Simulated assay, not measured.
Amino acid sequence: MDLEEQDNQLARERAAERFAAMEKELEERKSKLEELDAETRKKESALLRVAEKSKDIDFGILGFATAGDKDQLQEIKGVGPFIEEKLNALGIFTFAQISRMTSELEDRVNEAIEFFPGRVKRDEWANQARRLVDPGGGPNSKPPVPEEDIPSPMERELLEQAKEDIRKKEIADEREREMQMRRERAAELLSKSKKTEAVEIEEGDESPIDFAVIGFGSEEERDDLQRIDGIGRFVEKKLNAIGIYKISQIANMNQSISDEVNAAIGLGPGRIDRDEWVLQAKRLIR
């Protein structure tokens, strides 16, 4: 076994040791998820999922690094604050590690951090990282690109525009998927809601409330809606019965939805507006 192979094997062993030591910590973090607010819980859940996939990454190729070696990965175009956190959760902290990504590892990392399919390759993270690792072009750098292969300013502009169009489409598609998931979740919650004396939802009726706009909630993540002046215990039960469990859902109501909710739970006309539920809710979630 030559020196390079020994280094690769050592990196794999250190990564395996780190994951073994981290398993208990991950279980402890999972056990505390319910103590977090909805937004923090969503972020922490994502980081836990990513961290669990670190065992599938070949650190023999990437090399082993720790938080003490950390580079500012956001210098790579396409890496934002949360993506950087995901990369760190995966065990990737340095430009050097990213610069060593093979095509297969680019796909594995892309999938592990739950990024848009193919984004790591399209944004050329590995090439960007190589330039950051060796900006001057040392003896191990790649040979210069032949002049005829260098795109003209117009070609570069077209290429950048094409990349931007792809990003916009990915964002639009992701938003549409999220909206669809919200609609399906809302329909599922409404189908499970029990009939109450005050609110009777006949089987097969379609809810007039657009949960794609206000978001969805569940009994498990229910807020204390009585913190809003004008909502008592009885009104809170009515709101829960039609799928409204969270203060953020009330904060997202527009005029049309406020009127629908007002009618659905049998309040007097304009009651939600007069009591300023939406304004109160927005203040509570600041």
Rank of each mutant, 00 (worst) to 15 (best):
P153M: 12
A67H: 14
N252Q: 14
R177M: 11
E104I: 02
F93I: 01
K195Y: 01
F95V: 02
K55S: 11
L73E: 08
D223Q: 14
N252L: 09
W277A: 08
A172C: 00
I285L: 12
F95E: 04
A281R: 03
D275K: 04
F211A: 12
E35V: 10
P144F: 08
E206T: 13
I265E: 10
R41H: 11
V235S: 09
R182M: 11
E164H: 02
I228T: 05
K53N: 05
M22D: 13
L159I: 05
A46R: 14
A129K: 13
M101T: 03
D2H: 03
K142L: 15
E157F: 08
S103V: 08
A129E: 13
E164I: 00
F95D: 04
L47H: 07
N240K: 03
R182L: 14
W125M: 07
V120Q: 06
P135N: 05
A16F: 05
N8F: 03
E35Y: 11
S207A: 09
I209M: 12
P81I: 13
A21G: 15
L10R: 08
K30F: 07
R41D: 08
E13S: 06
G268S: 08
I76P: 10
A251T: 02
E39H: 15
I166H: 06
A89W: 14
S152T: 15
R29D: 03
K192S: 08
D165H: 07
E147N: 03
Q74L: 10
V213I: 15
R108P: 00
D2M: 00
E219M: 04
E276Q: 15
S207T: 15
K192D: 04
F93A: 01
D37H: 13
R274Q: 10
E85G: 00
K86M: 13
L132T: 02
S31A: 15
G80D: 06
G138E: 11
K86G: 03
S152C: 11
I57V: 11
E206Y: 07
I76S: 04
G60E: 14
A162C: 01
D123V: 12
S152H: 06
F82G: 06
V235I: 15
E160T: 04
G268C: 00
I61R: 13
V199F: 11
F82D: 10
R286K: 06
D205T: 13
A112C: 08
V278M: 02
P269L: 01
P117I: 01
E174Q: 05
E28C: 09
Q128P: 04
T196W: 01
R119N: 07
M181H: 10
A20W: 06
G230V: 03
D173C: 06
Q9D: 05
E221T: 13
E206M: 03
